[in-house]
Computed example of a mutant assay.
Amino acid sequence: EEIVQVANFALVKNYGKGKEYTNCSVYGEKVEIVKEFEKGDLIHVFGYFKENKKGDKVYKNFIVKSLNKIENKKENEEE
């Protein structure tokens, strides 16, 4: 039986007064990359959406194939 590491995190997209949350899952060695992330980091992700239906609800999860942190040139406004 193979054990595969998984990390789940949420991306937040800010626009106007609204926020859009996307739940993401990353597997394997890429889990180590996610451990370095902090709240407010700019992240670039590549992958695909997977939908799960439970009753009358549809849950979308983004399966991450590759990801990296974007180094922010200016200071983060939140800090």
Rank of each mutant, 00 (worst) to 15 (best):
V4S: 14
Q5D: 11
A7Y: 01
V12N: 02
K13V: 15
N14P: 15
N14F: 07
Y15E: 11
G16K: 08
K17T: 11
G18E: 13
T22V: 12
N23S: 09
N23P: 08
N23Q: 09
C24K: 01
G28A: 07
G28I: 03
E29T: 00
K30D: 08
V31C: 13
E32C: 02
E32V: 06
V34R: 01
K35M: 05
K35Q: 07
K35L: 05
K39V: 10
D41G: 02
D41I: 01
L42A: 13
I43G: 09
I43A: 05
V45Y: 02
F46S: 08
Y48H: 10
F49K: 02
F49L: 10
K50T: 11
N52Q: 12
N52V: 12
K54E: 05
G55A: 09
G55R: 00
K57S: 08
V58N: 08
K60F: 12
N61F: 01
F62E: 03
F62I: 03
F62L: 07
I63W: 02
V64M: 05
K65M: 07
K65G: 01
L67R: 02
K69G: 04
K69W: 06
E71A: 10
N72T: 08
E75T: 00
N76E: 15
E78R: 00
E78S: 09
E79A: 07
